[in-house]
Write a protein that binds this DNA or RNA. Structure first.
Length: 231
DNA sequence: GCGACAG
DNA sequence: ATCTTGTCGC
């Protein structure tokens, strides 16, 4: 486990944070399809908080994309770098997530984020931001709808309905389990939406949420506990 | 102006 | 995100 502080020059206000998004947005790569599902490695990242003690813990868990077995894992803890503001989630999660990714002993392959990428008010959600900063292919899989309305997808696993920004499809509500609430998939960096959905289905053989985020969620909670017991 | 709002 | 027990169902 590694420890991180708040990066120098990190935005201190919402206005500064929005300016950073507006500047970095142009670096997102949307014309690559990304690695094929079921090959190589897929990494889940997630973060847990103790606002009382100003502690944040992040985890990066690398899975073999074919077997979904865990092949590597790393965690990091730090101070909370930004308050939760809808639309600015990345500024709260990214410093610790980057530290966890840096601590991995192997390349992460495709990174699956908890939250949105393109389907964001300024088209630059957490998955987009993490992709631009690392250069890695990223996608966002969120548990709840955010800024874009959608029709309910069909009841069968695999059914999807678009998240529309006008006529532009910025993401999809994707059913990963029959008759269970869908997840919300959007592109981060260097991955197509079709491929992002294919990855999401490959990562959900048994549960609504991708194995990557389930593993990362459990891992960062443990890390927060370990960092928070006593002191 | 009012409500909604990823994690 | 987080606070939190049991309970219904496959």
């Amino acid at each position: 486990m590694t420890t991180v502080g708040i990066p120098a020059g990190w935005p201190a206000t919402e206005e500064e944070a929005r300016a950073v998004q507006d500047e970095l947005r142009g670096r997102v790569v949307l014309d690559e399809s990304g690695p094929p599902p079921g090959t190589g490695r897929v990494t889940g990242v997630d973060v847990a908080y103790d606002d009382e003690r100003d502690v944040v813990a992040a985890a990066a868990v690398v899975l073999d994309a074919a077997s979904l077995d865990v092949v590597a894992e790393a965690t990091a803890v730090g101070r909370i770098s930004f308050p939760y503001v809808p639309g600015l989630l990345a500024f709260r999660e990214i410093p610790t997530v980057l530290a966890a990714l840096d601590a991995l002993p192997c390349p992460p392959g495709l990174v699956v984020c908890d939250g949105y990428g393109l389907a964001h008010p300024r088209r630059f959600g957490l998955a987009s931001h993490l992709g631009v900063l690392t250069g890695l292919p990223t996608i966002g899989v969120a548990k709840n709808p955010f800024t874009f309305a959608h029709d309910a997808p069909g009841a069968a696993r695999g059914s999807a309905s678009p998240l529309l920004a006008g006529t532009e499809e910025v993401g999809r509500a994707l059913r990963t389990r029959d008759a269970v609430k869908p997840v919300f998939v959007s592109v981060g960096h260097r991955v197509s939406l079709d491929n992002a959905c294919a990855h999401t289905l490959a990562l959900t053989p048994a549960y609504r949420l991708p194995e990557t985020t389930r593993r990362a969620d459990a891992s960062c909670r443990r890390a927060l506990q370990d960092a928070t017991i006593r002191h």
